[in-house]
Computed example of a mutant assay.
Amino acid sequence: MPGAVIALPRVIRIGAGALDEVAAVLSGLGLSRPFIVTDRFLASQPAAERLSASLTAAGLRAVTFAEAVPDPTEASVAAALGAMAGGNHDCVIGFGGGSPIDTAKAVAVLAARGGGRMRDLKAPHVEDRPGLPVIAIPTTAGTGSEATRFTIVTDEATDEKMLCIGQAYLPVAAIVDYELTLTKPARLTADTGIDALTHAIEGYVSRRANPFSDGVALTAMRAIAPNLRAAVREPGNRAAREAMMLGALQAGIAFSNASVALVHGMSRPIGAHFHVAHGLSNAMLLPVVTAFSATAAPGRYADCARAMGLATEATPDEEAVERLLAELRQLNADLEVPSPRAYGIDEGRWRGLIPLMAEQALASGSPANNPRIPSAAEIAALYEQAWQA
């Protein structure tokens, strides 16, 4: 087996108040003309004003694009690229959840290439040529995008969430300040938290896992599992928020250096066709997909149960896996994760799109990393199970 190639941001600043260190990080990297990508809501919040003020105070000339949209599309990326044109920017700051950061990554790559379209860069293509440096500042504890070599952009023509892979998308710096999550609402906290847990689990059970990613994935689970419910129920719980932010970062590092698997492969089409938030679509699928997959790697899933505090080393693997499956179902119940049916998705449209969603899931490549590699028919059956959950 060939050795693993591990890739991380060059700089990671972690902790309360890290937002105020952005100017110093840019200066240390020799950067001075940032293009900030965020969304309208965040642009109106005090944290965005604080970021802009700190950059201005340091003598850095920043321009802000505040039109990032959930599940960025080729059109929204093109709008950001157009806003950036002529500004002679030397880096891109992604400020927000996964969508602004993914938009920033796409813009940074296309800007360095003089334009183009993300559909030409989707997997299985791997883009390793450097783009403009990206500084990622997450405001949710979920996607881990601040430390990954992936970005996701939707092709509006086909409703396909395109996975784009390569070192070009890896931020040069990550600013991880848990205080930015203290005002996040319960639903967003729950969905992004389960997203982070999914990253950690899939990174650990992936066929591309390695000793480095294993260690980080297990550490992420130890941080997330005992703190997710508290972060949702007690939004001001600083210890829980800090643990979730660190766990999300670690989970991002884990899957970026291993891979995600079947949950993510199936989740992306749900988001593209039904505009379900990424973390929520992962949560809808996690229990049923884990039950399908665990038979192929019971020892790995048992390790997840142990890291989450659900079992001990003395617990037999089969029992540990059962406890993991029970916990994932209970977690969805406790955090009020709806099934696709309860979410309000039209049943006829859901069932009509299952063949296409299964095809798109397989085409993404993620299911091939799963411990149990599914057929299109098996993926279709899992979509049916998720509907009934």
Rank of each mutant, 00 (worst) to 15 (best):
I135N: 02
K105E: 06
E319H: 07
F274K: 01
R129V: 12
A57G: 15
N369V: 08
G30R: 04
C91F: 03
E313I: 08
A254V: 00
P211E: 07
E156T: 13
A297V: 02
K184V: 15
L188V: 15
H264K: 10
G3E: 14
T139E: 07
L55Y: 08
T290L: 01
P72C: 08
L249A: 02
V288R: 06
V69Q: 11
A23D: 07
T315L: 00
G94F: 06
R113P: 01
T139N: 08
E127N: 15
R229H: 05
S256Q: 03
G365E: 08
P269M: 11
N370E: 08
F292E: 03
E378Y: 12
A111R: 04
D20E: 15
I93S: 05
G299I: 03
I224Q: 07
L188C: 11
D346W: 04
R119G: 09
G236N: 05
V176E: 03
A16Y: 06
G17S: 09
A7G: 12
S206W: 00
T295P: 06
A168R: 02
T140Q: 05
F150K: 09
D90M: 01
E179L: 09
R119P: 04
A261S: 12
G82I: 03
Y383M: 10
N210T: 11
L286S: 00
D128R: 12
A62D: 09
A75H: 10
N282Q: 10
F35M: 00
T139H: 08
G3I: 14
V92I: 10
V134L: 11
E21P: 01
L163D: 05
G131K: 07
A112M: 04
G114C: 02
R222W: 09
A141K: 00
V92F: 07
H275R: 09
P138E: 01
S52T: 15
E179N: 09
D159Q: 15
P70M: 02
L362A: 13
